[in-house]
Write a protein that binds this DNA or RNA. Structure first.
Length: 367
DNA sequence: GACCCGTGGTT
DNA sequence: TAACCAAGGGT
């Protein structure tokens, strides 16, 4: 054992919970931690900061006040509420989980970890989080915060990407978890990582468990956790076309699987080198079923994804032909400009939509 | 186990 | 400023 045991472990639990009771943030899902609100918050929080999530959470509970209302809603409505948050598979998973809960669990969030982990989108973290926070079950969470806190606390110098190291961290987390208040203990560990035990500049003097921290004792806390480095991002270029017909604009819906699944966008094709407007027009004709020609350039937008950087060249175009035949899209339609707000777009295409609506106002601030 | 999947804040 | 990284899960 190289982590606190016996009396030290009891003291650590007490110090951490005491600090949490003293300084925990006032978050909307903590005011009324009903199972549904906990589930919703945990899906929103996957890989996403608390400050970003709060307004989304408020909108979700307003729009979908219950599991039933979420389950009975069209997926498009859930995606619209999720618009701009990223990792859109979470919205699909949340929707699917809500339907499973209604169909297989009588509308009640299951109060056993086994049942929770069988729901769509419930991995090890979310299962433990809901079990502990909503039902006071003693399952330790392991998220990015916990990995950082525990790797420092126990001076773990091995690469935390290794499976055996992850297993060890999970075991430590479980052993240190306060069995009386597991939900608060889990949130305390995450809150510590999110506020004091930060990646670059941990505030050790304020840390309630600094006394127990081997990483700090060795002076290596800022070197932990040890992570293998990510590769550099590749660059992609795409062309999007804005096609108008009277007061409508042509928009298309991306396939449910994969990047930005289920979101709407202006018809877009990847750009290869040595291509010109004629090639883009042909490619966009294939995608839409119309005869598309590219005309004046509107704007070039840049957007950073996790694994690549996108340069999106937006053009105006002309289209002839009647029959819409989407290729690589699940749906394609002429939408009134006023109705673009009703559809869920990715960030880049939402920016383009806003530009179309009010070109003069956004021209000055656009990248 | 490696890779895919968004977006925005921070340093 | 480019890189890191966040209450991860699916394949």
């Amino acid at each position: 054992m190289n982590h606190p045991t016996g009396r030290a472990r009891a003291g650590l639990r007490r110090s951490l919970l005491s600090w949490y009771d003293r300084s925990r943030r006032d978050l909307p899902w903590r005011r009324d931690p009903s199972p549904y609100r906990v589930v919703l918050s945990e899906f929103l929080l996957q890989q996403t900061r608390v400050d970003t999530v709060v307004p989304y959470f408020e909108r979700f509970v307003e729009r979908f006040p219950s599991i039933e209302s979420l389950a009975s809603a069209p997926l498009d409505d859930v995606l619209k509420c999720w618009e701009g948050l990223g990792y859109y598979a979470r919205a699909r998973n949340l929707h699917a989980a809500a339907r499973e809960i209604v169909e297989r669990h009588e509308g009640k969030v299951p109060d056993r970890a086994d049942d929770l982990s069988n729901l769509k989108g419930f991995g090890p973290y979310t299962t433990a989080a809901v079990a502990s926070i909503a039902f006071d079950l003693p399952h330790a969470v392991v998220d990015g915060n916990v990995i950082r806190v525990l790797s420092r606390l126990c001076a773990i110098k091995d690469d935390v990407a290794r499976a055996d190291v992850r297993t060890r961290i999970s075991e430590i987390a479980q052993d240190l978890l306060d069995p009386v208040r597991p939900g608060d203990a889990n949130q305390a560990a995450m809150e510590l990582g999110a506020t004091l035990c930060s990646p670059r500049n941990p505030d050790c003097p304020q840390c309630p468990i600094a006394r127990h921290c081997r990483g700090r004792k060795l002076g290596i806390q800022t070197d932990l956790p040890v992570k293998s480095k990510r590769g550099s991002r590749q660059k992609r270029t795409e062309v999007a076309v804005v096609l108008r017909r009277n007061t409508s604009v042509l928009v298309a819906k991306r396939p449910e699987e994969g990047l930005l699944g289920g979101l709407w966008e202006f018809p877009t094709v990847p750009v290869q080198s040595n291509q010109g407007k004629k090639d883009w027009g042909n490619a966009l004709s294939d995608r839409t079923g119309l005869n598309v020609s590219i005309e004046g350039r509107l704007q070039t937008l840049h957007h950073a994804f996790t694994h690549f950087e996108l340069e999106l060249k937006a053009y105006e175009g002309q289209a002839t032909g009647k029959n819409l035949r989407p290729t690589g899209y699940t749906e394609i339609r002429w939408a009134k400009e006023a109705d673009l707000d009703r559809l869920a777009f990715s960030r880049v295409h939402r920016r383009l939509a806003d530009y179309i609506a009010m070109p003069h106002q956004l021209e000055l601030t656009s990248v």
